[in-house]
Simulated assay, not measured.
Amino acid sequence: MQLNGETQLFPIIGDPIAQVRSPQFLSEILARRGVNALVPPLQVKPADLDATVAVLRSIQNVRGMVVTIPHKVSCLTHCDQVSERAAFVGSVNIIRKTTAGQWVGDNVDGIGYLDGMAKQGGAIQGKRLLLIGVGGAGSAVAFEALRRGASYLAIHDLNIERRDAIIQSLATKFPNQVGIGSSDPNGFDLIANVTPMGMRPSDPYPVEVSQLKSSQFVADAITRPEVSPLVAYARNLGCKTMLGADMFNAEAEILVDFMLAEV
């Protein structure tokens, strides 16, 4: 790993930022590939996002950004181009600067989440999935789950307007395969939490854990604590599980591939 006047920067922006693993691990992947680049963490409040992105765009050795909560939806509007996937789900989690100076965005959260689940035994093909949370990452997970052949997707989100909007959008591409869910996991093969719920000791469980069965697969996106309360409960029942770290590990190489595509 290098740090000198030729070092390229791919900041990760979020609020909070202390929980992210990207700065160390993405920087290590870049170093292993022989690329002189780092991923510094930047804590940016929503009110300061527009000004921050404008400054980052103007800095010549900033070659892109990794985007985490709560900026994934807002950063879509700062891109000059976005992938079909990112446009469909309405958010980005990775942006690169082209040689022409344009910012191109994508959202690979869904790929990382579903790849991470698959590696831990949570195959999605032909299964019923209860998804908790459809923010920037959750909407990408919803799209990818249906693209990979989930038989049915139920979405539970406390933001009713956001929930209904993503259901309506997904239903145009995947008719009769998506609908409204609740916190009750009964009747589902897989349960996926893509909310920050569980990061704070005072947080409630994102689902009614008393209704979980050992035959169900339980996944969580949060990385701090490493084993979320939901995953810990599920493991005690004998469920197969996926940690937030498993999602990140599956997604990390994909993020770096995107960063370097046109650098």
Results as ranks from 00 to 15, higher is better:
1 M>S: 15
7 T>K: 07
8 Q>S: 12
8 Q>D: 14
9 L>A: 14
12 I>F: 03
13 I>T: 03
14 G>S: 12
15 D>I: 00
15 D>T: 06
17 I>P: 04
18 A>V: 10
20 V>L: 15
20 V>T: 15
22 S>E: 11
24 Q>P: 05
27 S>P: 10
27 S>K: 13
32 R>A: 14
32 R>T: 06
33 R>M: 13
38 L>C: 11
38 L>W: 09
40 P>E: 13
41 P>A: 11
45 K>L: 13
48 D>L: 13
50 D>A: 15
51 A>Y: 07
52 T>F: 06
53 V>G: 00
54 A>E: 11
56 L>T: 09
57 R>I: 13
57 R>V: 11
57 R>H: 12
60 Q>P: 07
61 N>K: 14
62 V>L: 07
62 V>P: 08
64 G>E: 15
64 G>W: 00
68 T>V: 13
71 H>C: 12
73 V>M: 13
75 C>A: 14
76 L>Q: 14
77 T>W: 05
78 H>M: 09
81 Q>W: 13
81 Q>M: 14
81 Q>D: 14
82 V>F: 03
83 S>K: 11
86 A>Q: 08
92 V>C: 06
94 I>W: 03
94 I>T: 15
94 I>L: 12
98 T>Q: 07
100 A>V: 06
107 N>D: 10
109 D>C: 05
112 G>N: 05
112 G>P: 00
112 G>I: 01
113 Y>A: 15
115 D>M: 05
116 G>L: 01
120 Q>E: 13
123 A>E: 09
126 G>M: 08
126 G>I: 04
128 R>W: 07
130 L>E: 08
133 G>E: 12
133 G>K: 04
134 V>H: 03
135 G>H: 01
137 A>Y: 05
144 E>G: 04
146 L>M: 12
147 R>E: 14
149 G>E: 10
150 A>W: 01
150 A>P: 01
155 I>R: 01
158 L>D: 10
159 N>A: 09
161 E>P: 02
162 R>L: 05
163 R>P: 01
164 D>M: 05
164 D>N: 11
165 A>Y: 03
168 Q>L: 10
171 A>V: 05
172 T>Y: 06
174 F>C: 08
174 F>D: 01
174 F>H: 02
176 N>A: 15
178 V>M: 01
180 I>Y: 09
182 S>R: 07
185 P>M: 01
186 N>S: 12
187 G>Q: 09
190 L>G: 03
190 L>A: 10
190 L>K: 06
191 I>G: 00
193 N>F: 04
198 G>W: 06
198 G>S: 10
200 R>E: 13
202 S>K: 06
202 S>I: 11
205 Y>F: 14
207 V>N: 03
209 V>M: 09
210 S>W: 04
210 S>H: 10
210 S>L: 07
211 Q>V: 00
214 S>C: 06
215 S>E: 08
216 Q>F: 07
217 F>D: 00
220 D>R: 02
221 A>L: 14
222 I>M: 03
223 T>G: 00
223 T>I: 14
225 P>Q: 05
228 S>F: 06
228 S>K: 02
230 L>F: 12
234 A>G: 08
234 A>P: 08
238 G>Q: 07
240 K>F: 00
240 K>Y: 00
244 G>H: 02
245 A>G: 09
245 A>M: 12
246 D>V: 02
247 M>F: 04
248 F>I: 09
249 N>Q: 14
249 N>I: 11
253 E>R: 09
253 E>L: 10
256 V>D: 02
256 V>L: 03
257 D>L: 12
257 D>R: 13
258 F>R: 03
262 E>P: 03
263 V>F: 13
